[in-house]
Simulated scan of single mutants.
Amino acid sequence: MSGDARDRVLVTGATGTTGSRVARRIAEQGHAVTAATRTPGRKTGARDVRFDWYDADTHGPALHGADRAYLVPPVGDPRPVEVVLPFLERARAAGVRRVVLLSSSAIPAGGPGAGQVHELLAGGMFEEWAVLRPSWFMQNFTGRHPHAAGLRAEGVVASATGDGRVAFVDAEDIAAVAVGSLTAPVAPCTDLLVTGPEALSYDEVAAVLHEVTGRPAAHRRLTYEQMRDRLADGGMPREFADVLARMDLAIAEGAEDRVTQTVQRMTGRPPITFRAHAEAALRRGHASP
């Protein structure tokens, strides 16, 4: 890695859906890893440290010795830039030279949420950077997301997406692109739209889950207001629930009906299909419904 003797990658959200995979893959490649999480000690294979976006006292130990960072902004915060910007300033002063941010395909630079952090990176805050903008996760239907919970409880996935299609992407593919962005000799210095290999409607997703698991699975179509209230009633901050419900409306209007070659280009292999993901989740005992 250049002429810098430092070779440590800080992974925030290191026990999360993408962070855990990034930390594992980076360690397997022989790089030193600091796994930053609110719940250290989960045997991530890295140096675990306690990290809380809202506790600045945890930021220094997390940054110690790191020259690159995988950044997962605080989940559910509609204005994450307010805590992420001071952290990035501290990271730059501490010697971090490359930052890879996890954002979303639905959020452009300068947009809400992580879009404000994206704008900082694109504006030159770090010379080496990348912003991952993955489509919606396949794990939403097989993990701990409200969609998966609804499938397990009722055999139903509820959304306001209508007939809109999404090129759902597996978190393993997102992690592979993140690792490439963190370890490549030259940083991408751009945003990377990360999708799966095919765009599917929620009706089609439910049909695949039914075929793979043999259990009931259907798409319940909601209005924007019904979706917002459903998320808020489930404990999500209402402002964030509104943002997610509006993203469903954008999907209904075709905003996510696109497929990119980012995974193929960054990893040399095609992205995982939704059927393959569902079959693997079923083997692990995690597939919904």
Rank of each mutant, 00 (worst) to 15 (best):
Q116P: 00
V49E: 08
G13P: 00
I107T: 15
E253L: 15
E253A: 15
R97C: 01
R246N: 13
V177Y: 09
A217C: 06
A199Y: 03
A218R: 15
R98I: 08
D170L: 07
R38P: 03
A175M: 10
A114G: 09
G235L: 08
G285D: 11
G95H: 12
R246T: 10
W129E: 11
R42D: 13
T17K: 11
R79Q: 15
A56F: 00
G113C: 08
A32Q: 14
V99K: 02
S103F: 06
G30D: 07
E89P: 00
R284A: 15
I107A: 09
A56R: 15
D170M: 11
V96L: 04
R220P: 00
V166L: 06
V186A: 14
A217M: 08
P108C: 13
Q261T: 15
A241D: 03
G45N: 05
L71H: 03
A278W: 02
P134F: 10
L10T: 03
S201Y: 06
E28L: 11
R42H: 10
V49G: 01
R8M: 12
V263P: 00
A218Q: 15
A178Q: 02
G155L: 04
G123D: 06
W129A: 05
P188D: 14
V169F: 12
A255Q: 11
V9P: 01
Y70T: 01
V11T: 08
V72D: 01
R42A: 15
G234K: 09
G268A: 07
E154G: 08
A158V: 03
R258P: 00
A114N: 08
P86H: 13
R90Q: 15
D4M: 04
H277L: 08
D203N: 05
D257M: 05
A218W: 03
T12H: 04
G111K: 10
G254A: 06
P197E: 14
H219F: 01
R238A: 06
P86K: 14
D57E: 14
R97S: 13
I107K: 04
D173A: 03
V81K: 05
G113K: 12
W136I: 14
M138Y: 12
A149C: 01
A167Q: 04
D163A: 14
A167P: 00
H286Y: 05
M266N: 02
I272K: 11
A232T: 08
F274Y: 13
A153W: 05
I251A: 13
W53A: 12
G60V: 13
V177W: 00
F137E: 02
G95M: 05
V177H: 01
D4F: 10
D67T: 11
A176G: 01
D203F: 04
V84K: 03
A217E: 09
V194C: 06
I251V: 15
S288H: 01
P237V: 09
P108W: 13
G19P: 02
K43G: 10
G113Y: 11
G162L: 05
P112C: 10
E198I: 10
G162D: 04
G150Y: 00
E172A: 14
T44H: 11
H118W: 11
S103D: 12
R284N: 09
C189E: 15
E128N: 13
T267E: 02
A276G: 03
T44D: 02
V11M: 11
H286V: 07
L102H: 10
G16K: 06
E127F: 02
